[in-house]
C-alpha cells in the first residue's frame, strides 16, 4: 500500500480525527458530573474562605448550609429583590458582569459567634485570564471582614499569589465606605499611597497587572452594591420583609 498517496493520507487523517474526537467526547461525557460537582464544591469553599472557614471536601456541603443562612439578589436601591433558594449561588458571574443590568447576589452568613457577615461576589480580569473572588463585609456595610480570590491562569509565584493568605489578609479591616461615599479598597505599589484617599493594600511585586486587576475588580463590582451597603450602614440589616 502506498503510504504517500493522497487518498491514504486523507483517510488516515480522517479516521484518526474521528477516533480521537470520539474518545475525548466519551471521556468528557463520562467525567462531566464529577467535574461539575468538584467545581460547585470549589465555589462553596471559595465563599467560605471569605469568612475564614476551611472545610474538608466531605463536610463542605453541610458547612456551607450551616454558615450561609440566606441568599438573595438585591436591586439598584439596595432592597432584596429575590430570595429564592440558591438564587445567589446560581448566578454565573462570568456572564453576569457583561450584562447591562447585573444581578447583585448576596450571601448572608452567621458565624459561630452570631455575628452577621454579607459576602459579595466579584469578577474581573487579571493578566492572562479572568480573576474572581468574594468579599465578606461586616454588618456595618463598610468594614471588610475577609476576602478570597481565585484565578484561572495567572502566573504561579507571581499573579497567582493573590490567592495566598498573606495577600488576602491585608484587606481585613479596610473600609469600603469613607465619609459616606463608596471608595472600594485600592491595590497600590508597595510604598505608595492611594491618591483618592481610599483605603489601600500593597500589590504583589512582579505582578503589577494582576494586582491592578484585583483593585479594578473590587471597584467595578462592588460599586453596584453601594445602595445596599448604605442600607446596611443605616439599619445594620437588609431591608424588606421577604427575608426570614
Amino acid at each position: 500500500m502506498n503510504k504517500n498517496s493522497n487518498s491514504y493520507q486523507i483517510i488516515y487523517a480522517a479516521v484518526m480525527v474521528v477516533l480521537v474526537g470520539a474518545l475525548l467526547a466519551f471521556i468528557y461525557m463520562a467525567l462531566k458530573p464529577r467535574q461539575d460537582e468538584n467545581i460547585a464544591n470549589d465555589k462553596r469553599q471559595q465563599i467560605l474562605t471569605a469568612i475564614n472557614i476551611t472545610s474538608s471536601p466531605q463536610t463542605l456541603k453541610d458547612d456551607f448550609a450551616k454558615y450561609v443562612v440566606a441568599q438573595y439578589l438585591v436591586d439598584d436601591n439596595g432592597l432584596i429583590a429575590d430570595s429564592a433558594q440558591n438564587v445567589a449561588f446560581n448566578v454565573d458571574m462570568k456572564s453576569n458582569v457583561k450584562q447591562e443590568k447585573r444581578s447583585l447576589p448576596v450571601y448572608k452568613c452567621v458565624l459561630a459567634d452570631n455575628s452577621v457577615k454579607y459576602i459579595l461576589p466579584i469578577y474581573g480580569a487579571g493578566l492572562w485570564g479572568p480573576i474572581w473572588g468574594y468579599v465578606a463585609v461586616d454588618a456595618d456595610g463598610s468594614t471588610v471582614f475577609g476576602t478570597s480570590f481565585s484565578h484561572e491562569s495567572e502566573t504561579p509565584g507571581l499573579g497567582a499569589r493573590i490567592t495566598e493568605d498573606g495577600f488576602r489578609a491585608q484587606f481585613v479591616g479596610k473600609q469600603l465606605v469613607k465619609e459616606g461615599a463608596f471608595r472600594s479598597v485600592e491595590v497600590v505599589k508597595r510604598g505608595q499611597k492611594s491618591l483618592t484617599g481610599a483605603d489601600y493594600v500593597d500589590a504583589i511585586s512582579g505582578a503589577t497587572i494582576t494586582s491592578r486587576g484585583v483593585g479594578t475588580m473590587m471597584l467595578d463590582c462592588l460599586k453596584f452594591y453601594e445602595p445596599f451597603l448604605k442600607k446596611l450602614a443605616d439599619s445594620n440589616q437588609p431591608l424588606n420583609g421577604k427575608e426570614d
Binding site: K3, N4, Y8, Q9, Y12, A13, M16, V17, V20
Partner: peptide, 13 residues
C-alpha cells in the same frame, strides 16, 4: 502506518 507528509500533525494530535 504514519504517512510521512502528515507525521507532524499526527504527532501533535
Amino acid at each position: 502506518t504514519i504517512p510521512t507528509s502528515i507525521r507532524i500533525i499526527v504527532q501533535l494530535v
